[in-house]
């Protein structure tokens, strides 16, 4: 069958769900879901072996639309449920979809420890710089100076660098992509899914409704323009003088290791005892 593009996507969507999905016009989350589906398709993973574990928020709503095993959990805790599923059945491809508030604020501790213990989960952090679903309050990723419902006079705090956090915590694979650079995003996502251990992929995905409008982006398109002009390959970004970096941010791969996941180490431990039992 020679099908391409969105025809592939349509095969993976749940036919008994109502479309279009609930997300706003221009929301990048749909693009992430598309990339995820294409990545899974490209890797040839059976639908039954893929588990999507989502947190709460706009990103959490993605799970319901796609025909995998899907679990919509509690706010910030997606990684904990995913950890349980992965440990209980290491054969599954467990993909966690979280928002920036989800993964970095309420779930920050889980994020750190999932990376530290290198559990075999793909963590997609959909960073839209804001709490979207609940009405546009500040998240830990809201840039300093920008306006939100809970920072009406501008955000005073520094925002989190998700990539640095994941690197520091010991993740196997750390990368950043954007929903404008979809081909690149897909490549990163394929890696993030197929590698062992804890793989974190941050996706910059604009929220026009709750973030853009309050911060001088007139329409969704302007936010994509901003992505287009500010995202920069990591190597180029690092070569740039610091005073010239301005709003620019690096995308690409930051850490790439092949340490075995926790579930593999645990399996080895069990194999030792099993050998003892049989021998």
């Amino acid at each position: 069958m020679n099908i391409t593009g969105n025809e592939i996507i349509h095969q993976y969507l749940r036919h008994n769900k109502k479309f279009p999905h609930v997300l706003c016009a221009g929301c990048g989350h749909g693009i992430v879901l598309g990339s995820l589906i294409r990545s899974v398709h490209q890797l040839g993973l059976p639908k039954d072996d893929v588990v999507i574990v989502a947190g709460i928020g706009c990103s959490g709503r993605l799970a319901v639309y796609v025909d995998f095993n899907t679990v919509h959990t509690t706010h910030g805790r997606a990684l904990t449920f995913a950890t349980g599923i992965k440990m209980a059945n290491p054969k599954l491809n467990v993909i966690c979809i979280m928002g920036d508030g989800d993964a970095l604020s309420i779930g920050g501790n889980h994020m750190i420890h999932a990376a530290r213990r290198n559990i075999g989960i793909t963590a997609l952090i959909l960073n839209n710089n804001i709490y979207g679903m609940t009405g546009g309050q500040s998240s830990p990723a809201t840039p300093q100076g920008s306006v939100s419902m809970t920072a009406p006079f501008g955000q005073l705090e520094e925002s989190f660098d998700t990539v640095q956090l994941a690197c520091g915590a010991g993740a196997n694979f750390v990368a950043r992509g954007t929903v404008f650079h979809v081909h690149k995003l897909e490549k990163l996502m394929v890696k993030a899914i197929e590698r062992p251990g804890f793989n974190m992929l941050e996706v910059i995905t604009p929220c026009h409704t709750q973030y853009g409008r309050k911060n001088k982006y007139k329409n969704p398109v302007e936010m994509y323009r901003w992505l287009k002009s500010n995202a920069m390959e990591r190597e180029r970004f690092e070569a740039l003088d610091e005073d010239k970096r301005g709003d620019k941010f690096p995308i690409g791969v930051f850490v790439e290791r092949d340490e075995p996941g926790l579930e593999e180490r645990y399996h080895e431990l069990k194999a030792r005892f099993a050998a003892g039992r049989n021998g």
């Binding site: 904990t80 449920f81 950890t83 349980g84 599923i85 440990m87 209980a88």
Partner: peptide, 14 residues
């Protein structure tokens, strides 16, 4: 919090 999340996940996985 994570403990409870993990055992819910473990239970879901059978």
């Amino acid at each position: 919090i994570a403990s409870m999340g993990a055992i819910v996940g473990g239970s879901m996985a059978g």
